[in-house]
Simulated scan of single mutants.
Amino acid sequence: MEAFSQWDFPISNHSNLQCFLKCTTPTVEKRMKTCNGEAKKDLNEGFKLSELWQCFTEWSAYGVAVPILLNNGDRVIQYYSPSLSALQLYTTKPFPSSSDDHQINLKFRGRDKMNKTASNNNSSCLGSNATTRDGDDSCHKMTTRKCGYLYYQYNETTSPYDRVPFNEKISELSKQYSGLVDLHSKDLSPYSWMAIAWYPVYQVPGATNVKELSACFLTYHPLSSLSLGSQNIRLESEKVDGKRSGMSMREEICLPPFAMITYKMFGTLWISPDTSDFDFVLCQRNAASYWLKQLQFHHHDFNFMSRQFQNSASCPP
């Protein structure tokens, strides 16, 4: 048991699901000077997208470690690999992109329908217009008025086992769309979001014949400062030689999921009867469905998991 002492395993009134969500919540860390003539940063200043992607660097390389308490009392560390499932970036003002970026956006306009047809060939849906068909200017104007200016969207359709790690995909896409790293959360409308697919890769120690550990997750996260409240911001004094210092502060901006859907979440391993997890899973699934419908976004991973959802043991009969 000593090998697991550093891990925060679920206790009787907490579930493995809650532990998973805690471990996989993206967090942006920012350090602030509070003296030496430097002004303290505004807690609501938000973050650049490049700062957000930094938290995925280690996760993309090694996976996210999630401590799990098995039904027989054994403990394992399950590692989950994150991949970019979908993303939409709406800006509050027209993005001052280069002419090359603009031409790329126009090039992909209207390819949503074509790429959905090509999904059987393991293609990815890339585009600059999530809700309109070619020539439908009225629908485009309505989307702009409601959501903002759509800078970029992504919808992954390849097999989960053929996908590249999260950071590698962001690096690949940002070569054509610089806003993926240059945009700031304050520049994004509340309709900006991303979806992350989490698939298990291995456990330590290895667990055999535990089908519950094959559970996969799809989580939806906000990307705009306008979507975040004070509860998403934590401020702590940094420790220097084991002591707290008032000279420097660390700010953490958390981006917990606002929606989620699960796949292969069998049995009672993930949900504790002492919690409201059962209702939470259903509410999170409904939230994802509502979100996608209001944006008229045909999310490939959600559609796949949704078809399997009714067959899962986590659903009511």
Rank of each mutant, 00 (worst) to 15 (best):
E172I: 04
Y191P: 07
L292N: 06
P10S: 01
Y202P: 05
P200F: 03
M1F: 09
S272F: 11
C55N: 00
K186M: 08
H184Y: 02
N167V: 05
A86Y: 08
Q203Y: 02
I261Y: 04
F166K: 01
V181N: 01
V240L: 14
K22E: 06
Y202D: 05
S60C: 04
L218G: 07
E212A: 14
G63N: 01
L180G: 01
K243D: 14
S81R: 06
P96Q: 10
P26H: 01
Q54C: 07
N120F: 07
V64K: 10
K175E: 10
S159F: 10
P222E: 09
D101P: 12
F304W: 10
E45K: 05
Q18E: 07
G246A: 12
F304S: 11
K243A: 15
W59V: 02
W193E: 10
F304A: 11
C125N: 09
A207M: 05
S12C: 10
K239P: 06
S312N: 13
D101L: 15
A207C: 10
Y90C: 02
T34F: 14
D136F: 08
L173I: 00
S99N: 13
P82A: 00
G135K: 01
K113M: 14
C315N: 12
P94V: 12
S227C: 06
T25D: 03
K186N: 08
A3P: 12
R250V: 15
G242C: 15
L17C: 03
S60M: 03
G73N: 00
P190N: 04
S178C: 11
E51M: 02
N13Y: 11
T91G: 03
F309M: 05
F258K: 07
Y263D: 12
Q18T: 00
L292E: 08
T275N: 06
S159A: 12
L255C: 08
S245Y: 05
K40N: 06
E29T: 14
K93T: 13
W291G: 10
T24I: 01
T92N: 05
V210Y: 08
E156K: 08
G242D: 15
I253C: 07
G110K: 13
R31K: 15
H14M: 11
P94N: 14
S15D: 07
Q203L: 03
G206M: 09
T27A: 08
F108E: 11
E168S: 02
L188P: 04
F108L: 12
H184A: 03
K116M: 06
K243F: 15
E252M: 14
V181F: 04
M1L: 09
K146L: 14
L43W: 11
Q284G: 02
Y80H: 03
N72G: 12
F258H: 13
E38V: 15
S272V: 09
F302E: 02
V181C: 03
Q54N: 13
P82E: 00
I104R: 15
L269G: 13
N122I: 04
A118H: 12
W270I: 00
M260P: 00
A259K: 00
Q284C: 05
I170M: 02
E172P: 02
E38I: 13
I196A: 10
S225Q: 09
N16V: 01
Q296P: 06
M1H: 11
S192K: 01
A130W: 09
T275D: 03
A287P: 14
V164A: 02
E2K: 14
L84M: 05
M249V: 10
L69P: 08
E212S: 15
S98N: 13
S97F: 13
